[in-house]
Design a protein around this nucleic acid. Structure first.
Lengths: 199, 199, 199, 199
DNA sequence: TTGTAAACGAGACGGTACGTCTCGTCTTAAT
DNA sequence: ATTAAGACGAGACGTACCGTCTCGTTTACAA
């Protein structure tokens, strides 16, 4: 067995380097085709040596996921609106999502994130925890409120409800199978609510 | 302008080479991590020179998409069962999909396909036409029958209906956010039918 | 055991690339400190890929040795002058050597060659065969003629005689222990002849 | 102009660290291929940080030269034997040199020293002063005695005489052009004395 | 304050895969 | 049946990154 390379000392880590790498990764991912987002390019853009990147992240994908997780973390709360009308609230959220997906910057980032999760099981888990879970929690809170006022039945779990709401939108975005408009968002919200309504 | 490289003569194309490449691509994609499915490896496995691959396909992604499209084409019909009960039929289809996704071979192929469509706009369109469209048509036919017997309302398009049915499953598969079981498939079918039912 | 990487096919080797590499190696070695003569720099200067260099040479040292051997090979004959007077002939040769050693270009090349032979046993043997041996032969021929006319005794081998003549000069060059002038060359030739003269 | 990094205060220098570095450098140089004698390795072996080495020595070569100079300094006197017979005394010395060169440890150190002097002009000068000059002096003393008893002529300087004696041996060692035996040493001594003898 | 420990920027290392380009060889379809 | 156009295999090539390494410097902590 090799002498087990001692892990780096996190206490001595340069915050400057860390931030520069994450920002460079985001910027490059947003502005060029993903295959051109190489570790080399990130290092150059960040003014950091490749060794520093490999010291702290195992792969390009890990950097990108970390960058997006970092942005998600610092991006403020994820709480859904609650006007008392679930369908209207969901429509609002879906319209926002649709708008984001229309933004080429955001779209590029999401594509990159998706590619990496498809290529690396570990990263998928990380995305699940750091990005997906908080969103599920936010949706769960809203669904709980809806259940309390009888807008959602008891038989459907939060995860299933969330999928009902967002999966069609992401599916369409990923397939390019149809337009992503506000009216489409409204329709998805309406259908989801019909499916979720108590029997 | 460069002298425009004369396109190869399709009439003289070696069917042996073509088949070998597609099969090698499928086999490699199924059996190893996708980044290791290189053109070089496909050529070696197929007993074909790299030049031959680049003569007929513009990229690795194109080979993989072609391979899967080929399999889809020759894979028999896509018609959905029609027992008169939409929900039961959809549940059956979703169970079959869930089973396929559980198969590591098929799962690998789908992951590779997804990655390529995310990285190349053109391939996404190709997948849409050669793989997605036939499935949409099959679903559309079944939905039409369901509408005829009043199990599906008039207000929902085929595409939206299809998304309602399959998007949650693929979403969960891609995120790894929950188990992909038969009972889950049944639940998705049930919720989709509630959403689709006439008002 | 790894699958033994098949050796490259020498028949297909690009003479252009080979020549460019050897010339670039010589040029760089002549014009900059030897540690800066990297494989990377040689490749860049030669307009050749690093892979090509590594395909055909195992190390930087091998390239440099090959380059110098190539130059020695194509550099014309090594025959010593023969005026009948051994001492005068040797003085002439040593003056030429001293002049070469004074040339910074040649001096750089020789330094590099020496470094590599010190670091790699195999290269030392190669230098011995391709560069040293021909010179020994040339000297040997002259010594034989000198022996025939009684200017050199029978008891001294060619190798020992050669060392007597050239070792002091190279030693002084390498140590920097004294000036390398024509009169010094004359002195060395004179002393060597006294040592070689028949008893 | 940068704030001119104050040179370290030699008075405060840790003798422990200095000794450990020099000894580690010698040990490593003796026991492994020279390219693997890195500053990192020396620091690790010496139980000293790299920064400490770079504070007191400008380069790896300087450490090695310093280490060998140190050993030479503390290695006792260099006086040559004087039995009244120059040739016998020189033969004795040359036999000792040949024995040393046969020792792989010593040979490794000398190879390293030679490499560094070839790569760095400054180090060559340092070696000349600290290692070569004392030896020249020792030889010079013996030659003076030999001149006094008429075994060496007046026309040959000490440096030239020294070269005549030792250069062939080092030349052969460096080239690997022939065996380094005691009888070879005797022959070199004999030839040198013939060359040095008064006219 | 010195020395240690370790992270850092720089950049060469040896190597993989890319996509292009000769080469001969072998197929193929139009003479 | 012959021929010639051209697809084929093989594989060397220039390019671009990979992930690792060493260098020499810098920073933060310990004695």
């Amino acid at each position: 067995m090799p002498p087990a390379p001692r892990p780096p000392d996190a206490a001595r880590r340069s915050e400057r380097a860390r931030t520069a790498v994450l920002e460079a990764a985001l910027a490059l991912t947003a502005e060029r085709p993903y295959p051109q987002v190489t570790v080399e390019a990130v290092a150059a853009r960040a003014g950091v040596s490749k060794a520093t990147i490999y010291r702290w992240w195992p792969s390009r994908g890990a950097v990108v996921v970390d960058a997006l997780a970092h942005r998600a973390r610092t991006g403020g709360d994820h709480a859904l609106p609650d006007t008392g009308e679930l369908e209207a609230d969901l429509a609002l959220v879906l319209r926002a999502i649709v708008d984001e997906l229309a933004d080429e910057t955001w779209s590029s980032l999401l594509r990159a994130l998706t590619v990496e999760t498809l290529l690396d099981e570990g990263l998928r888990g990380q995305v699940l925890e750091t990005i997906f879970a908080p969103q599920l929690e936010a949706f769960g809170a809203r669904f709980a409120a809806a259940r309390a006022v009888g807008q959602v039945g008891e038989g459907v779990g939060d995860l299933e409800a969330l999928e009902l709401v967002v999966a069609p939108v992401f599916h369409r975005w990923q397939q390019g199978s149809g337009p992503l408009t506000h009216s489409y968002a409204d329709g998805v919200a309406a259908r989801a609510c019909r499916a979720l309504a108590p029997a």
